[in-house]
Design a binder for these strands. Structure first.
Length: 149
DNA sequence: CTGCGAGTCAAAC
DNA sequence: GTTTGACTCGCAG
């Protein structure tokens, strides 16, 4: 079963779920037509709204689909997922964990299909913010929500 | 302080 | 094979 959640925030946060598993999250100009049925979807919608209001929320229980990604990318994203609310790591920190280069880490996190659930905005450059797929202003806004910056 | 070159390595072509 | 990054480091101006 396919479900869709759409939350207004800056633009819109659109979430697509299949059988209770989150396939992807995108930041769009327009909302998607919502279809929220399962308890999981309802719960995720509530959690998103709380999170975007600035409350501390833990998304680690939601299942995400990383099956299209390469093993390396999956590994990096799973590590990113462990970064706790309000904390950040640098690309270099993660590179050290895997014995790879900061640049390779950047390439990997850029492929994150489910921002927020996998908090790739918590990965920053050593001096500065680094980039963000959905635009740097989003990254800044998310970090601000969490009280970083 | 700022700028630039080189090193790095997974992915995409 | 070659090119390209959501990076870093080091070293000149």
């Amino acid at each position: 079963m396919l479900e869709v959640i759409s939350v207004r925030w800056l633009r819109f946060v659109n979430v697509v779920m299949k059988n209770g598993v989150v396939l992807r999250i995108t930041f769009d100009e327009k909302p998607l037509y919502e279809n929220v049925q399962s308890e999981t979807a309802k719960s995720l919608k509530r959690d998103l709204e709380r999170y975007l209001r600035g409350e501390r929320v833990d998304f680690s229980e939601y299942e995400v689909d990383l099956s299209d990604l390469t093993p390396f990318t999956r590994m990096v994203l799973e590590e990113v997922r462990k970064i706790p609310y309000g904390r950040t790591l640098t690309y270099g920190d993660l590179a050290k964990v895997f014995g790879t280069s900061p640049r390779a880490v950047g390439v990997a996190v850029k492929k994150n299909p489910v921002p927020i659930l996998i908090p790739c905005h918590r990965v920053v450059a050593k001096d500065g913010l680094g980039g963000y797929g959905g635009g740097i202003k989003l990254k800044k806004a998310l970090l601000k929500l969490e009280g970083v910056l």
